[in-house]
Write a protein that binds this DNA or RNA. Structure first.
Lengths: 214, 214
DNA sequence: GTCTATAGGGTGATAGAC
DNA sequence: GTCTATCACCCTATAGAC
C-alpha cells in the first residue's frame, strides 16, 4: 500500500505530529503553561524542527486556535440555517450534535475559556473569520427564538436567557466534571459519559418546559 | 484619625497590597501567565519585597487560592445545613446567594477553572481543608435532593443532573459573557448585570418546573 | 528535513546596602 | 522594611553541521 501524504494514525508526517502534539498540550494546559519543549517531546521530535515548520510558538498556537474554533462552531453552523424545525426538534438537533462533539473533544471548552481569558480571543477582532461564524451562529439562534415567540409557539422571554441556558447545560458539565464527580477515576469517567448521553434527551425536554405556554 | 493595621481602600499595608495585586492578576490571568514582576508593579512595590513577605510565587498563589476557594464555597455552606426549606425556597436561597457573590467577583469562576486545569486543584488531595468543604457542600446538596424525592415532593431524577443544571445556569454565563454578549462594552456590561439579576428569580422557576410532578 | 549547540532575553529568587 | 543589582535558570528562536 502506497503512502499518501495524510495517513491516519501514528504514521503522521512530522508536520502533523507537531500539530497534533501542540493541539493536545495547548488544549489541556493553555498557551502560557505550555512550553515549546513539551510540544517537541510529545511529538517525538526536536525543538528546532518545531520552529522550522511553524516559525514561532505564537503562529503554531494560532493555527491550533483556528482549528479548535472551527470545531466548536462548525458542527452547528452547517445545519442550523434554512431548516424549519419545531422548537423541540431544533433543541434535539442542536443539543445532540453538540454533546456528541464534546464527548469526542472533552477538553475543547477549556481551550475556548483559556482563549477568552488570555486575550487571544478578541470579540471585536473583525479580521478573524471564525469569530464571524460565532457571531453568525449567535444571531441565527436569536433570530430563530424570536420568530418562534412572535408566532406564539413558545413563551416570551429574553432570548439571551434561552441561549445561555442551552449553552450552560450542554457545556458546563464538561468543564466542571471534576467537581461534579468529586473523586474522579475510571468508574467515574464511564458514569460521567453515561450521564452526558442521558442529557442529550433530557436537556431538550427541560428547554421545552422552559418555554411551554400552559 | 489613627491608622489601624487594616484600613480599607488604598491605604493598605504592604503585605495587603501585594496580596490584593496577586489576587487580581492570578484571578484574571491564571498562574502561569502571571509574572511576579507584574504583581509587584500592580502593588506599587518592588519585586524583592514580594519574596520578603511571601517567600515564593507558589506560596503566594496558594494563599490566594485558599481565599478564593473559601469565597466560592463559603457563601453557601454556612446556611445550607439544618434549615428545612421547600425546594423552591431552597433554590431561591442558593441561586440568589450565589449570583450576588458572582456579581461582586465575576472573575472567580475563571480562577476556579484555571485551578482545575492547571492541576493546582486536586480532587483527591485530602489535606486541603477547602476541598473538604466542596465535597461536603456537594454531599449536602445531593442529600437534600434525594430526601425531597423520597418524600415524593419532587420528580425522581438523577440528583447529579439537578446539581449540574443549577451550577451551570448560575455560573456559566459569567464565564461565557463575552460570547453571549458578542461585542462587549460598557452598555453590554450593564445589560449583562441586569440579565443576571433577572436570573435570580428565573433560575429557581426553571428548576422548579424541572422537578414538578404534574 | 533533522539534528546539536547556542544566542538572547525573560523570570523567580536572593545578596547586600540603606 | 524597602530598595538596587545580580545570579542562575528556563524559554523561545536561530545558526550551522549533516
Amino acid at each position: 500500500m502506497a503512502k499518501k501524504k495524510d495517513t491516519v494514525a501514528k504514521d503522521l508526517s512530522t508536520e502533523e505530529k507537531i500539530k497534533a502534539a501542540a493541539k493536545k498540550l495547548f488544549t489541556q494546559k493553555g498557551f502560557a503553561a505550555t512550553k515549546t519543549r513539551d510540544i517537541a517531546e510529545e511529538a517525538g521530535i526536536n525543538l528546532a524542527l518545531l520552529n522550522y515548520y511553524f516559525r514561532s510558538k505564537e503562529k503554531l498556537f494560532e493555527l491550533v486556535m483556528r482549528e479548535n474554533l472551527s470545531l466548536f462552531v462548525g458542527v452547528l453552523l452547517e445545519d442550523i440555517k434554512n431548516t424549519p424545525r419545531s422548537f423541540e426538534e431544533q433543541m434535539n438537533f442542536l443539543v445532540g450534535r453538540y454533546i456528541d462533539m464534546l464527548l469526542e473533544n472533552p477538553d475543547l471548552p477549556f481551550f475556548i475559556l483559556n482563549l477568552i481569558q488570555s486575550g487571544h480571543f478578541q470579540t471585536d477582532d473583525q479580521g478573524n473569520p471564525v469569530l464571524k461564524e460565532i457571531t453568525q451562529l449567535r444571531a441565527e439562534f436569536l433570530k430563530y427564538a424570536m420568530e418562534q415567540m412572535e408566532q406564539g409557539k413558545i413563551k416570551k422571554i429574553h432570548p439571551l436567557h434561552l441561549m445561555a441556558n442551552m449553552m450552560s447545560m450542554i457545556i458546563f458539565p464538561f468543564i466542571a466534571s471534576s467537581i461534579l464527580m468529586a473523586r474522579s477515576g475510571i468508574t467515574d469517567r464511564k458514569e460521567f459519559e453515561r450521564l452526558m448521553i442521558e442529557r442529550k434527551k433530557l436537556i431538550p425536554q427541560w428547554m421545552k418546559e422552559m418555554v411551554e405556554i400552559r
